[in-house]
Amino acid sequence: MSDHHEVTDKAVVRIQNLHKYFGSLEVLKGVDLEVRRGEVVTILGPSGSGKSTLLRCINLLEKPTGGEIWFEDTCITDPNTNINEVREHVGMVFQSFNLFPHLSAKKNVMLAQRKVLKRSNEEAERIALEQLAKVGLSDRSEYMPSQLSGGQQQRVAIARALAMDPHVMLFDEATSALDPELVRGVLDVMRELAEGGMTMIVVTHEMGFARDVADRAVFMDEGIIVEQGLPEEVFDNPRHARTRDFLGHII
């Protein structure tokens, strides 16, 4: 259950009154969210609700139109902030894996360590093999991405993000592109990660994961947070009609 790891009071990510427009379309209509160290937050909602956009704003893959986002003590929406320094500490896992197809699994995990963290080749390799072992892919370290299954690719992607020692991990529908039989392996890795105390913000359609692993469930619709709370509260006693409606469709 959710209380086997420690959730501190210190906020890792703090979002205030976040607005985002795509052209004239307002996708985020003033979102406030705070994620504390060690906390696992799942964001739920129908497609088009703005949950992915919210996630992608946290490391500025999308540039917010208004509002503020803080990462620890840094205001990342401040134009003077070097976003690359922030991104070093914010791991992200994508729906479509986005491995570097020209590099082996190991080299995928090593690249940013070498380039961004300036780790030595030996250290980067050691960490890469460690992380690959953690996601159960020790025997695949020399494989090219095209030789790996989708699930394996996603696990390499997780290892790649973890190798940077992130303070928070963002999962953007990490299992949506996978065949059903491959979803489990990825979810297991995520579960272990959560149990290890990683701060995680997870956009997902996996209700089982949300219910079992998360400390908090956030339900979004039409660019706002409709309701949030302990997973069992949100799932079992949704206060809002829209939440009920959504859960009714999905479960």
Binding site: M92, F94, F100, L111, V116
Partner: peptide, 25 residues
């Protein structure tokens, strides 16, 4: 686009992204 995003999410700057990720491909 995902290649740019993955690189960015790892903290790589534009030059690193270009020469280590994009150009080799």
């Amino acid at each position: 686009k995902g290649q740019f995003e993955a690189s960015a999410s790892l903290g790589m700057n534009a030059v690193q992204t270009m020469f280590s990720v994009i150009l080799p491909q």
